[in-house]
Design a protein around this nucleic acid. Structure first.
Lengths: 140, 140
DNA sequence: GGCATTTACTTGGCCGTGCAAGCAATTGCC
DNA sequence: GGCAATTGCTTGCACGGCCAAGTAAATGCC
């Protein structure tokens, strides 16, 4: 039997791919791509932020965030402003169009969560959350 | 509080990223990139295959596999041969260099699995596998 | 003050991945 | 046989991500 196929690692890879695909599908109508919604959520929750804060919060590479923000600006969801107090820094703020996405994206995110966990009992969900947290700690 | 951060969806995204990063690190010395090892494993297990079979097995888009195979060929790990019986089809076969990676990659994959599951009891591991399978079914 | 170091971001390059469009060979069917 | 539909693959394009190298501003320290 194909030992490699039954590993948890492989399961993680497959789940990650399907999950991303589902996210992409649910976000399509909003105009966001999977990944961008997390950035926007941080802006909605915490207001305008320097990119450095987003990088920290999202745990992504600086270059990844730079380009994500560039694309969000291109799409009109975000504005980039040079900080007055630190002229290296860029402050990212949601535009009106960006703010307008909030409810729709929250809804899509909720649907994604529902889809992901469909059929799992409450204890199963808690267990999954616990185990994923352990795995995350292992890999970080 | 930031409700979105505590979702299982978000945990999946974070785990997937760390997991991929770990895979990339463990595979680095072999010359493979995360993702390519799964393709090679299928070749090692099942011998030369038409791309269509790899696409099916890996559950990836045809274009993704085309390019992965192109890069593996570029790296010298794989050879592409036009099928005699169906001249549309491309048969992918591991080269000697590709075969030579087998043990090293198996080892790396095992290390990845160990790292991922470190500290989890046997029942925890079984439970995680079960829950991931459920989630995967939900998302497919 | 002045220079080395650190910080904040950019850009180029590369990989995985998907969609859309397109080409060529094969198959299905009248 | 002959033409339509299907199959197998490729290419262009766009995203998320990462690393490495580079620029410019702010900080640290003598």
């Amino acid at each position: 039997m194909h030992a490699d196929i039954d590993t948890t690692s492989h399961a993680i890879v497959r789940v990650a791919r399907s999950h991303r695909a589902a996210a992409e599908r649910l976000l399509r109508s909003s105009g966001l791509h999977a990944g961008q919604e997390l950035l926007m959520m941080h802006l909605w929750d915490n207001g305008p932020q320097p990119q450095s804060a987003l990088i920290e919060l999202l745990g992504l590479d600086a270059s990844t965030v730079t380009r994500a923000v560039q694309r969000l600006e291109q799409s009109g969801f975000v504005r980039r402003v040079r900080s007055e107090t630190d002229r290296r820094a860029v402050i990212v703020q949601p535009t009106a169009a960006g703010q307008a996405l909030r409810d729709q994206v929250s809804q899509a995110w909720k649907e994604l969560e529902d889809l992901t966990l469909a059929g799992l009992t409450e204890p199963d969900r808690a267990e999954l959350a616990r185990l994923l947290a352990l795995v995350e700690r292992n890999l970080t």
